[in-house]
Design a protein around this nucleic acid. Sequence first.
DNA 1: ATTATTTTTTAGTGTTGGCTAAAATCCTAT
DNA 2: ATAGGATTTTAGCCAACACTAAAAAATAAT
Lengths: 220, 220
Amino acid sequence: MIKLTYAEENYLKAIYELTEAGKKSTSTNDISAWMKIKPASVSDMLRKLGEKTVIDYRKYYGVHMTEEGKKLALRIIRKHRLWEVFLVEKLKFSWDEVAEVADELEHVQSPTLIQRLDEYLGFPKFDPHGDPIPDEFGDVRSRPRIALNEIELNGSGQIVAVKDSSAAFLRYLDKVGAYIGARIKVLEKVEFDGSIEILVDNKKTIFMSKDVAGNILVMQ
Amino acid sequence: MIKLTYAEENYLKAIYELTEAGKKSTSTNDISAWMKIKPASVSDMLRKLGEKTVIDYRKYYGVHMTEEGKKLALRIIRKHRLWEVFLVEKLKFSWDEVAEVADELEHVQSPTLIQRLDEYLGFPKFDPHGDPIPDEFGDVRSRPRIALNEIELNGSGQIVAVKDSSAAFLRYLDKVGAYIGARIKVLEKVEFDGSIEILVDNKKTIFMSKDVAGNILVMQ
DNA sequence: ATTATTTTTTAGTGTTGGCTAAAATCCTAT
DNA sequence: ATAGGATTTTAGCCAACACTAAAAAATAAT
């Protein structure tokens, strides 16, 4: 059984997120920028994670995750997302406050705890940001999604997730009235700057820039 | 603002528990035995905690807690006990399983989290072992309690806490049907070995040794 | 009161995980 | 093909916290 330290878990989660987002492999610098840890420190840790066979590491080349590593990463992500659901659903945190706390809670070691928490929350399939929660075997039921700015004129769908989970962005979405689960329809697409106008839940219209729309994921 | 590391928090909690139980001061060896960390390591940590002014440390003499230290220790104990309530009440852990998990959860740093958790649990005043939960200012409403083996013949009361919280002891209590909140009456006291017979909730009689009775606290 | 024993502290070591500075390697542009 | 720049790695350092072995202080026993 592979045992990871707190720091190693954080690296593995980061690597998983980067390789999922930007496909196959990730560079030392990417990880460094993402985790705000100097490249030299990252190099050192990659060597260690390579020795533990959770990543595939060849010097000067990018990092790939091994099957073992993916399993462990998904276990951490599962914990993180379940705690996020708990914080929002039960403790009434707003969705922009949960990341930090969940980053700590995700490291608590107790399989029983996670299993019971899952049960207590009613086996949720998605976290408050719309991201899927892996099951205990690491299986993920992801929904086909498309960025909001890529929906055609008069196209409709439902907001299911956000790409950018920064507190600032989430607060902005709250303010304008966009939320996970909202049903939307694209009323106008401005050629000039790519901004769009959408109808939310058939009652409110919102203008948003191309940047904002590009960070909102919709299921059609 | 004094910042403590994970390890420092553990030491402080241990010292608080030892000085509360055995009164005033505690020795390096006591802490070493309690925490299962070698005396040499304890010495080193005491020096550090002394520098941070959370304990009063003079070489070769015992350790006393400072007011600052007590406040911090009570904050940790508050977190620990609130999580224990959560685990038992919401996640249906049995009371002998919670200590380990709560030992990890107690270190999560987020005042908001604890405040919301407290609220969510309905501001409980006692944890599943009957120990009082300090409020956010560190105030503790403790109940006057007496060990069960010191109750006089035909005396009665209610089980409010246990001294020994080891999983083995708690499982034993569960098996015989003693639990926090049970109303008891002492039916017999055996002079010879100090064992007693008690009536639980007016329906079940239990025999227990002096040792066991001495670890059960009763409110009269 | 002086020795013996126990307790506590100091000194030195190892591991984890960060850092800076310098070296090595890779990539790109001429 | 090679010089310049960017990226990555190595080397050496530091802090936190554990350990063992040895020294120092306190306590107990003769």
